[in-house]
Amino acid sequence: MLVVDDQPLFRAGLVALLNASPDMTVVGEAADGDTAVRLVESLCPHVILMDIRLPCGLAALERVVASGSSARVLILTTFDLDEYVHEALRLGAAGFVLKESEPARLLAAISAVASGEMQFSPTVMRRLVAAYLRGDVPVAPWVPAGLDELTGREREVLRLVGTGLTNAAIASKLTVTEGTVKTHLNRVMTKLRLTSRAQAVVMAYESGLVIPQAVAKTA
């Protein structure tokens, strides 16, 4: 694991905590994004635990994801949904955990991310959708590669995911089985190279499939 935080004492505490865990080993640490990227290339960590607000943090996340590295990035933040977190979701972070979390919660999040899971709770998903609907998140129009490859039904599923509906609710709305919804969503994720449902929400708004004002009128 690579620990990236620009506060020396906090970073040292994280390293000590992680190395004390029997199934975790810290292979390196960095105080800024540029150093982190270099260490990812040389050390090939499985998980990167990164403070998103450090110098060049977002740029480092983007470079790591774009490099094709298998390292999964777990974001550390003091706020559960600020502008940095929204951008991190768009760039492909595997999840995030609050800095004030209990040690057990942090260790569980790291283990989950290392095993391929995503760390975005239902509460976070609701807050993410609500933030878009309130207009708290600036939406820059963007047509992602692969959007034109989506079928009409896949676009509709992505749009409904963006409005905050669960798979069960989407299935009921479209009069299909929940398994069918999961199949469509998996195809959407593959075609758009998305890694989490949270990233799908971001994509739905930025691609223009979901317009906040329109959702508000139908709510």
Rank of each mutant, 00 (worst) to 15 (best):
Y132L: 11
G95E: 00
R105S: 14
R134W: 07
L128A: 01
N19I: 11
V15D: 07
E178V: 10
N167C: 12
V129Y: 04
K182Y: 03
T35C: 09
R197P: 06
A168D: 08
D32H: 04
V143M: 12
Y205K: 13
V73A: 02
A216R: 15
L128P: 02
L39K: 03
S42M: 13
L9K: 10
A145L: 09
S70H: 15
A168T: 12
L98C: 08
L194N: 05
L192C: 01
G208V: 00
N186C: 04
V143D: 08
L194P: 01
F96A: 02
S101M: 10
L98D: 06
L17I: 05
G179Y: 10
P45Q: 00
T77S: 00
R197Q: 09
S111P: 08
R187N: 06
F10P: 08
A131G: 03
D32G: 00
A93P: 03
P138H: 13
D34P: 08
K182S: 14
V47M: 04
A198F: 05
Q7R: 12
V139K: 03
N167H: 05
R63I: 10
G13Q: 03
S207F: 01
V64D: 04
M189R: 11
V202L: 06
Y205N: 13
Q213N: 09
L81Y: 09
D32Q: 05
F79H: 14
Y132Q: 12
E102H: 15
A200T: 04
L185W: 12
P103H: 09
T218G: 11
A31F: 06
S70K: 15
R63P: 09
I211M: 10
L17G: 03
D5Y: 09
L106F: 10
T123F: 15
A66V: 02
L9R: 09
A168M: 15
M189K: 11
R127T: 00
A94F: 07
G162I: 00
S67N: 07
G146K: 02
T78E: 11
L160G: 04
L133W: 15
L43F: 12
E83K: 15
Q119M: 11
V40Q: 03
L89M: 03
K173F: 14
L98M: 09
A109D: 01
L91R: 05
S67F: 13
R38A: 14
I110D: 00
L39R: 05
V97W: 03
H184D: 02
E117M: 07
D23R: 12
V97Q: 06
L98H: 07
S42V: 08
D51V: 03
V124E: 10
I52G: 02
S111T: 11
M203K: 12
V64G: 00
M125H: 14
V161N: 02
L58D: 04
Y84H: 14
S70Q: 15
L89I: 06
A20W: 07
D23N: 11
P103Q: 02
